[in-house]
């Protein structure tokens, strides 16, 4: 298994993620096919991936996080080819290396905020060990939530289901960040937020990811967000999408 501890010491390649000649089709009668010849995400980079709805942004992130496996080509994460990993190993690899934030519905509604934040810790020894360096797990989770602007009483008393969407996304960010994964993957995490909340959320997210040296790749169809990021990429510039019969 890859060791991000080693990565921190500078032995890792410069790229957090690299795609080479990747091609993927969703199964089905009229599949959507995405082809990415070359793409790189650098360590510590904050990247915004733009593209219209239905262009394949989420598909791209699924490939990146190893949720789906490419039909062809190679995806390296921290220098490791994910295709060589078996199913369960890939699941473990994912939680070790990625913090994932969805567009919405990120939380288990019946769990407490702390429970929700600590979820990755339960599946990843690596992130657990990383988190434990900051003290007791509950304290680490709480500190993250506070840093992301959640109220102390809300943290102590609320169930996830009772939070506003903005609050939920902050909890999701805390979950993505805990245990210092190298890559934060966010699929339109702010699309349900208003402009002000959105700005505040991104600011806090970047602060915390700088804290742990994580790269951030976020997809959106909103070009207005570009100012917050190091680099902006359009999906149509790095990938070709195709619908219908396989070729």
């Amino acid at each position: 298994m890859a060791s991000p501890g080693a990565a921190r010491e500078g032995k890792s390649p410069l790229d957090a993620v690299s795609f080479a000649d990747v091609r993927y089709s969703w199964p089905g009668p009229s599949p959507f096919t995405l082809t990415i010849n070359d793409f790189k995400l650098r360590n510590g980079e904050k990247l915004l991936l733009l593209g219209p709805s239905g262009s394949g942004k989420s598909t791209f992130l699924s490939l990146l996080a190893g949720i789906v496996v490419p039909d062809r080509g190679r995806i390296d994460v921290s220098g490791e080819d994910m295709a060589t990993l078996g199913g369960a190993a890939r699941d473990r690899f994912r939680v070790d290396h990625f913090g994932i934030i969805f567009q919405m519905f990120n939380l288990l509604p019946y769990g407490s905020l702390i429970d929700n934040v600590l979820l990755p810790i339960r599946f990843s020894k690596l992130r657990r060990d990383n988190a434990l360096r900051g003290g007791a797990l509950e304290d680490v989770a709480k500190r993250l939530l506070l840093a992301l602007g959640l109220d102390e009483t809300v943290i102590a008393t609320s169930k996830a289901a009772s939070l506003s969407v903005g609050q939920q996304q902050r909890v999701a960010a805390a979950r993505a960040l805990i245990g210092a994964p190298q890559i934060i993957v966010a699929d339109e995490p702010t699309s349900a937020l208003d402009r002000n909340t959105e700005g505040a959320f991104l600011k806090l997210l970047f602060e915390q990811s700088n804290e742990v040296d994580a790269s951030v790749i976020m997809v959106s169809h909103d070009e207005g967000l570009a100012a917050h990021f190091d680099r902006v990429v359009r999906l149509q510039d790095i990938a070709q999408s195709q619908r219908g019969g396989r070729s």
């Binding site: 996080a65 199913g87 699941d91 473990r92 969805f102 519905f105 979820l119 599946f123």
Partner: peptide, 15 residues
Amino acid sequence: RREMAILRSVGATPA
């Protein structure tokens, strides 16, 4: 399904 997707995103295997 959301619950499942969340669990999978944090490393739960399909098993």
